[in-house]
Write a protein that binds this DNA or RNA. Structure first.
Length: 442
RNA sequence: GGAGAGGUGGCCGAGUGGUUUAAGGCAACGGUCUUGAAAACCGUCGUGCUCGUGAGGGUACCGUGAGUUCGAAUCUCACCCUCUCCGCCA
């Protein structure tokens, strides 16, 4: 959510930023100026009447206490009521319209974010690692996984339908090893605290991080979740949706709280499954396990002071890159252009890992700075030490560290051998009981 | 799921229709005192919206939403959450 006062005072800037994203300011903001004016007018009038009402009510009290007749004053107050109800209703309607309009406006990208339309316009910031050369034609992971007996997509379809996977034997163990390896690195070496949050959240939480109201179709909701309410901008605390990322429960941990400055930065990491409906992704990445309805991810989330968020963003991105470096997987870092930056983000780096089986770089981590966009929605503030300090919104950040399923893919494809076996990266061996090579399962 | 109790500011906690512009305490912050610190004492101390160039004013907020009333933290209804006990259960 953008700050109302900022939008009012910088409408041209906001509109330019929205256009840079490829969004239509008119469609998003409508007649913002007129609406804002009507709203404020209704509020001012209503409050003036309320002041009058309160004054008269006090007179009634005073008169009654003095044993005098208060009928006339009571009548006058009663007469105010009709007009007041009308004004209040109008004010509430304008307010609701503004709130709903603003809730669908994406964040403003930072000035250093390059203007562009799509991922084709994302500049590459750095490239790391040497692509291995193979004296055979490297296979995609779905072939390797099936041949090794560590990935069973056919039976997953029987259980759950398309876009689900069953990992078997050392395949399952590899997934689990990756989770532990990532969490240990984040907690033991990089200063994060581990969190194990619920995998279902209410609609208020999804509003807080920006998935609702706009992206309800991308989510799986439980039968007690009222999508119609969410679409109307009513967010409940007793409905349930499957989380699309750990970002949602972890960021919302401090919703409606005021944190002490001394506690910042707060750095958390969480392993969770993630559930995505993949609405509109029909026909995309249908082979293999790149795009699933359920996948596992280790996430990093930070709450920081506004002046620190730029530096913390770089640190967080480096924390994700370190995993790829330890696993010796070639990758590159790209900066998302305005047209490709997500709804809630002000600036995003994507890490893309090299997949030789498919001959392309593939997103494996997305590290974003949200500025105060999420904290304003979720009302997460901090209070600085010192006299007369008012609570201020924190900046939130998060990034995958990493998407586990895609890391699994990257290892299988990058470390494949001519005989179809897969060498286990050295850093991961302690997590697999010293196993050096994954070979065909019985 | 059943029965009972409860939900008040950063925290604890008073408050059952009219100076409540929410008592009191703790914490925090500023000051006095002190070589420094602690203690003691004095003072400051909620959030949003809105009006105002400003000082400042108005208004709303006591779990959420409706309602009764001239007036609601206080009364009524619905819902949510927490705690205790019972039931069911991994």
């Amino acid at each position: 959510m953008l700050d109302l006062g900022f939008v009012r005072g910088n409408l041209e800037v906001v509109e330019a930023k929205l256009r840079a994203r490829g969004a239509d300011p008119a469609a998003l903001l409508g007649d913002f100026r007129a609406l804002d004016q009507s709203r404020r007018q209704a509020i001012t009038q209503s409050e003036q009447l309320k002041a009058r009402r309160n004054e008269l009510s006090q007179q009634v009290g005073a008169l009654k206490k003095a044993g005098q007749d208060a009928t006339a004053v009571m009548e006058e107050t009663r007469a105010l009521k009709e007009k007041l109800d009308e004004l209040d209703k109008a004010a509430a309607e304008f307010d609701e319209k503004m709130r709903l309009a603003l809730s669908r406006v994406p964040n403003l990208t930072r000035d250093e974010v390059p203007t562009g339309k799509s991922e084709a316009d994302n500049p590459t910031i750095k490239t790391w690692g040497e692509k291995k050369s193979y004296d055979f034609a490297p296979k995609p992971h779905w072939e390797l996984g099936a041949e090794l007996g560590i990935l069973d997509l056919d039976r997953a379809t029987k259980l759950s339908g398309a876009r689900f996977a069953v990992y078997m034997g050392q395949g399952a163990k590899l997934e689990r090893a990756l989770i532990n390896f990532m969490l240990d690195l984040h907690t033991d070496k990089q200063g994060y605290t581990e969190v194990l949050p619920p995998f279902m959240v209410n609609s208020k939480s999804l509003y807080g991080t920006g998935q609702l109201p706009k992206f309800a179709d991308d989510l799986f909701r439980c039968s007690d979740a009222d999508a119609a309410c969410a679409a109307k901008g009513e967010f409940k605390d007793n409905d349930h949706w499957l989380i699309p990322t750990a970002e949602v429960p972890v960021t919302n941990l401090y919703r409606d709280e005021i944190l002490d400055e001394a506690r910042l930065p707060i750095c958390l990491t969480a392993y969770t499954p993630c559930f995505r409906a993949e609405a509109g992704a029909a026909g995309k990445d249908t082979r293999g396990i790149i795009r699933q309805h359920q996948f596992q991810k280790v996430e990093m989330v930070k709450f920081v002071k506004p002046e620190d968020s730029e530096a913390e963003h770089e640190k967080l991105t480096r924390n994700a890159e370190e995993i790829l470096e330890l696993l010796e997987l070639p990758y590159r870092r790209v900066l998302l252009c305005t047209g490709d930056t997500g709804f809630s983000a002000a600036k995003t780096f994507d890490l893309e890992v090299w997949l030789p089986g498919q001959g392309l770089y593939r997103e494996i981590s997305s590290c974003s700075n949200f500025d105060a966009f999420q904290s304003r929605r979720a009302n997460i503030r901090y209070r600085a030490a010192g006299p007369k300090s008012k609570p201020e919104f924190v900046h939130t950040l998060n990034g995958s560290g990493l998407a586990v399923g895609r890391t699994w893919v990257a290892i299988v494809e990058n470390y494949q051998q001519a005989d179809g076996s897969v060498i286990v990266p050295t850093a991961l061996r302690p997590y697999l009981g010293g196993l050096e090579r994954i070979e065909k399962q019985k």
